[in-house]
Write a protein that binds this DNA or RNA. Structure first.
Lengths: 123, 123
DNA sequence: ACAAATATATAATTTTCCTATGTATGTAGG
DNA sequence: CCTACATACATAGGAAAATTATATATTTGT
């Protein structure tokens, strides 16, 4: 029986801010790394963004499952130290999907910079 | 009685891509323009993004209504050419909210660029 | 013995946006 | 006159994406 304890965690970092780009982020990492497992992805994102973006399992795993169901990812399971590790890799379709997603992201970011005047267009 | 006609519209532009930035976009425009009405906002966004981002009424009006309910926008109604025009302006709270939202957006875009390697960090 | 890190998973909810409507006026062209 | 298009606002219903809150289980460090 587990006797609960209270953990209080103050999140100073930017969560709730993934804004539909979670798939793109994961796909990009898989484009660079050939195969990765879930936990590895969370750590990589944390590392790259200096802890400013922390993927929650509750959003990442459903996203991975969906992409697998959609046929853009495949999985291989391994046992490491008695723990299950589920590796994800891009399928042929997935490799095409990454390019599309990245192009969309570039376009979106460009437009957002225009709208938010993050590009110092003022004379 | 209206006898329907079929319009086929190929959308080449980026829709379904607002990704939680709709409020920020609207607030930023209102920061620059003192007061604006809904239709004007859609046209301004279209103009700035060269037609690549087209706000739909179905997303914009509910967003405006919500921000008004949240107390960050106030409205004034005018009649122009027998048409109703509802102007939106930032409240005192709204002026603070814009800064926060812009800061979040800057952070988010920065991290996204890092993750998607849009910043040419590779040697 | 306990906490923290490693590792995956899902149910329920919330947020956000889009689609599809509906209303109404003004203007330009045929 | 009639149609189409632009101007102008509004909302209901639904889909998609992410979060919160769980649950399970092992290893490692203190």
């Amino acid at each position: 029986m587990y006797v609960g304890k209270l953990y209080i965690c103050v999140m100073s970092t930017t969560n709730g801010m993934l804004k539909g780009s979670l798939q793109t982020i994961i796909l990009k990492l898989l484009q660079e790394n050939e195969k990765m497992y879930g936990y590895e992805i969370t750590q990589k994102v944390k590392e790259i963004t200096n802890g400013e973006i922390l993927l929650t399992e509750g959003s990442m795993y459903p996203s991975l499952h969906k992409m697998e169901a959609d046929g853009i990812l495949t999985t291989t399971t391994e046992m490491v130290d008695n723990r299950i590790r589920k590796y994800y890799a891009l399928t042929k379709e997935g490799k095409i999907a990454v390019e599309t997603k990245l192009q969309e992201a570039r376009s979106f970011i460009g437009n957002l910079e225009l709208l938010l005047s993050l590009n110092s267009k003022l004379s």
